[in-house]
Design a protein around this nucleic acid. Structure first.
Length: 222
DNA sequence: GCGACAG
DNA sequence: ATCTTGTCGC
């Protein structure tokens, strides 16, 4: 693969990313969660999409897509590796969300195009990046209290929030994906967090993707 | 040159 | 991400 070409594609696409709020984002009726994983030693990419109703945070739909992996994992180019499976799962959705939480970064990326920003701008859906690790940028130490936050800064601009969602847990990296401001991104993630480190949409997507007991129980009870 | 490096 | 049991701490 030609990284120089992909890098150019990122710069071009990043210019189309909307970092401000959309009027129809408020209030969301359906919030989605996306999680991508790999199987068979990485040869198969598995994308899970779930739809929750807001504010009840009730699971209303789940979809899983498996496609042949086309690219290796290269820091900074993750979206190209996950995009095919995400698009496949997206097409299977019978109810598209008003807002989507994507595992990974949004604009908190070296060229401001993490997977959340890339997918969001591609299908033109409001997205928020929810990552568990830092990719770039710097931030001051967080207080131990849950709820504490610090701006994530890179090259002189704020590209996200580092937020401690739960006591004694490592913080989350929240950023704009597409059509959602940084402050709103943190607002919606807070509104969808229910006592666990990860917000509900992300937790459910993860549970569905890996066949967690919580999901299996939900599936049997209907 | 050295260290960092989403999932 | 994934391979995987027990184990330390609240």
């Amino acid at each position: 693969m030609d990284l120089a070409a992909l890098r150019q594609e990122q710069l071009q696409r990043a210019a189309d990313v909307v970092r401000q709020d959309d009027f129809d984002v408020l209030p969301p009726r359906f919030i989605g969660g996306a999680d991508v994983g790999f199987e068979q030693g990485g040869e198969v990419t598995r994308a899970a999409l779930v739809i929750l109703e807001y504010p009840s945070l009730t699971l209303v739909e789940h979809r899983i897509a498996r496609v042949a992996t086309t690219m290796p994992y290269i820091p900074g180019f993750l979206s190209f590796r996950e995009m095919p499976a995400l698009l496949e799962a997206w097409q299977q959705l019978s109810q598209q969300p008003d807002l989507l939480f994507v595992d990974g970064h949004g604009i908190s990326h070296p060229r401001r195009l993490g997977v959340a920003a890339h997918f969001g701008s591609l299908v033109d859906v409001p997205t928020i990046g929810v990552a568990k690790k830092r990719l770039c940028g710097r931030f001051a130490d967080l207080a131990a209290e849950p709820g504490s936050r610090q701006p994530l800064i890179d090259k002189g601009e704020q590209i996200g929030w580092v937020w401690r969602s739960k006591a004694r847990c490592n913080p989350l990296f929240i950023s704009t994906g597409h059509r959602v401001s940084l402050d709103s991104a943190l607002h919606w993630v807070e509104a969808c967090t229910a006592g666990y480190r990860l917000p509900e949409p992300t937790r459910w997507a993860d549970a569905v993707a890996s066949g967690r007991p919580a999901f299996l129980r939900w599936q049997n009870s209907r």
